[in-house]
Amino acid sequence: MSAAKRVQQWATFARTWHVFDCKWQDPYESAHVIKKYLMGLHKPIYHPMNDCGDVVVCINSKDIALRGNEWRKRAYFHHTGYPGGASWTLAWELHNKDPTMIIKKAVYRSMTGNLQRRHTMQRLFIYPEDKVPEDVMQNVTNQIRQIRLVPTRLDHIPEEEVKNFPKIMDYPEDYVLK
């Protein structure tokens, strides 16, 4: 290949590092989006034999939000292979033990069960908080948008906005709130 064509090949098949903030996100919905980037399905050059997947770095995985009763009810099954080695772990127990496991299992489950799955999972990095090693964060060039809206906390809204917000009615000054 000539030098120019080789540079073009490097450019087209370059592996991008994406960062995804899992704060207050549903792991199963996010897994659907993350798996696309891991497998390379977001690229027009995708082919299953092409090794075109990107790296995804998930941060704040301890702040994940499961729906409804799932923290109490959802159980993860594990068998050690030995007789009597079956165990069912509830979501909250698993999260306490290892805060990265829930989203890792969610992404693993969202992919097809073929031989490429384990190799693709190696491209996923999950960190429970904001703290990411320097060399990993230096490679990151793109951010994946969150799926669920993270609402601003009422006490995080700046004071001027609260004052200038149009009021329909206000309590009289001597009114006592129970």
Binding site: V19, F20, D21, V140, T141, Q143, R145, Q146, L149, V150
Partner: peptide, 8 residues
């Protein structure tokens, strides 16, 4: 990155 401008 991570920046809420691109991430939110």
């Amino acid at each position: 990155l991570p920046d809420p401008k691109f991430g939110a």
